[in-house]
Amino acid sequence: MAKLLYSAAASLDGYIAGPGGDMSWLTEHLTGPDPAAERLLANVGAILAGNRTYGGDDPNRGTDSEGAFGGRYHGPVFVLTHRPPVEPPPGVTFVGDLHSAVTQAREAAGEGYVNVLGADVARQCLRAGLLDEILILFTPVLLGDGVRMFDDSGGERVRLAPIPGESAHWYRVVR
């Protein structure tokens, strides 16, 4: 069964987007391949994103690198939203509840990963006990404000364990 993995590029002070969801800060840090991101991309079978992330800012907007993984991901995408478009784009499925979205994404991913994109969906998956792994790709910048990688006021403590042989910031969720 596919594992749910939340991956994000983050500033050293814990933000995955600037104020208002701005992703332009990331452009200058997309300078070359990252071995952990390359291993993840090779194993992603589906993407599960929140509606804000799906329709939000892309540091590569308007270029050949627009989209997930610099435009290199070409597979099923599931968007968790209560406001689906009337005519969804090809390859994108809009789902109204978390458990159904996760089930559909896992089925589509097969033995690969379901890559969770978006802080809110990641928080929901974590709270529901559905998130299996977390990969954070830190960038050398302090944003000072914006969208935190995890913002769960009143949330519970979650233990993480490093995954042997992986990046220093690739963890499994300990249950």
Rank of each mutant, 00 (worst) to 15 (best):
M1F: 07
K3Y: 01
L5E: 08
S7V: 02
A9S: 13
G14N: 09
Y15N: 00
Y15S: 05
I16Q: 04
M23I: 06
E28A: 13
E28R: 15
H29S: 03
L30R: 14
G32R: 10
P35G: 07
V44K: 10
V44P: 06
G45A: 11
G50C: 12
T53P: 07
Y54W: 14
G55A: 13
P59F: 02
P59W: 05
N60S: 08
S65M: 09
F69T: 02
F69Y: 08
G71K: 04
G71I: 10
P76S: 05
V77P: 10
P84E: 02
P85V: 06
V86W: 08
E87D: 14
E87L: 14
G91T: 15
F94K: 08
F94T: 10
G96A: 14
T103E: 14
A108F: 01
A109C: 08
E111S: 14
E111A: 07
V114D: 11
V114H: 09
L117G: 13
L117S: 11
D120N: 13
A122P: 05
R127V: 08
G129K: 04
I134G: 11
L137H: 09
T139H: 13
P140K: 02
P140D: 08
G144R: 00
G146V: 03
G146W: 00
G146Y: 03
R148K: 15
G155F: 05
R159A: 14
A161W: 02
P162W: 07
P162V: 11
P164W: 09
S167F: 10
H169E: 14
W170V: 01
R172M: 12
V174C: 04
